[in-house]
């Protein structure tokens, strides 16, 4: 038993190294004093980070992405609350197919979502802008929000809400006083996850963004220029650090939510 366990453990650690290898390279080259991304390293510098501050196009892209990501996370979390509530509390005709369809973007290649939205938006004459990207991002983030909020609603004991109603509250005030505070951790992690996905999403933004690129679209446009690569590495380092921070916060809230409602930890984000 023991020896078998260690074999698996060694394999799993090797696998984790494979998973993390590219990400580890990121800061190495971001601080490397050379325009060529290759070994051997040429010394330490923070120039590439400083260079980021001097590119207006980058700043516009960051701002665009932030606006899109914030809007997306709020909208998809709202839609997620409705759907998760309906799927955990109510039985209604066509429940399975309806929810299955809403979750479909999880397994649909993103390029399909992108081109089909493009066709429709151009077809009805809507100009491409940050808003069209938001439309697409809400579509793909909502299933993630639903998955997170489903577990938040599931660990919420139904009789808590009934007790509040029994004690004289209305449905709405029950939601405000009981349900909402208790699913708050789920809502926060849904906001953070949607934000992260939207910030990182490339293809839909690539197709649906108009003249104002998002951050990934901007990065994509820079990958062609070898001289820009070190500063892209620096940018990547910042992004990775940011996503990991957001994830840790999201995980913290998810666990706190489970702990608070006294439930069992049922696993990760997916």
């Amino acid at each position: 038993m023991r020896s078998k366990g260690t074999g698996f453990r060694a394999y799993t650690i090797a696998y984790l190294i494979f998973l993390y290898a590219p990400i580890v390279l990121l800061p190495i080259f971001a601080f490397n004093n050379s325009t060529i991304i290759a070994f051997p390293l040429a010394g330490f510098t923070t120039n590439w980070f400083r260079e980021l501050a001097t590119i207006p196009a980058l700043h516009h892209a960051v701002w665009n992405s932030l606006v899109i990501a914030v809007s997306t996370s709020i909208l998809s979390t709202c839609l997620g609350v409705f759907a998760a509530r309906a799927s955990t509390r109510y039985d209604f005709p066509g429940k399975g197919p309806i929810i299955g369809f809403i979750m479909l973007p999880l397994v649909l290649p993103e390029i399909i979502v992108a081109v089909s939205l493009l066709v429709v938006l151009l077809g009805i004459g809507i100009e491409l802008s940050a808003w069209t990207v938001i439309l697409g991002h809400v579509l793909i983030c909502t299933p993630f929000s639903i998955a997170i909020l489903n577990s938040a609603f599931q660990s919420l004991d139904k009789s808590l809400e009934e007790a509040a109603i029994d004690l004289g509250e209305t449905r709405w005030s029950t939601f405000r006083l009981i349900t909402f505070p208790l699913i708050m951790p789920g809502i926060i992690s849904s906001l953070l996850i949607s934000f992260t996905i939207s910030l990182d999403e490339f293809i839909i933004a690539f197709f649906l963004t108009g003249t104002q690129p998002t951050l990934p679209v901007y990065i994509w446009s820079q990958l062609r220029f070898p001289t820009k690569l070190p500063s892209i590495m620096a940018l990547g380092t910042i992004l990775v650090a940011l996503s990991i921070t957001l994830l840790i916060i999201a995980e913290y809230f998810r666990r706190r939510g489970i702990a608070r409602s006294g439930g069992q930890d049922a696993g990760g984000f997916l």
């Binding site: 984790l16 998973l19 990121l26 490339f202 990065i219 994509w220 990547g236 992004l239 990760g268």
Partner: peptide
């Protein structure tokens, strides 16, 4: 295991 998945796909 999931962390790398959430970091910039493009990069």
């Amino acid at each position: 295991i999931t962390i790398p998945f959430w970091t910039s796909y493009l990069i």
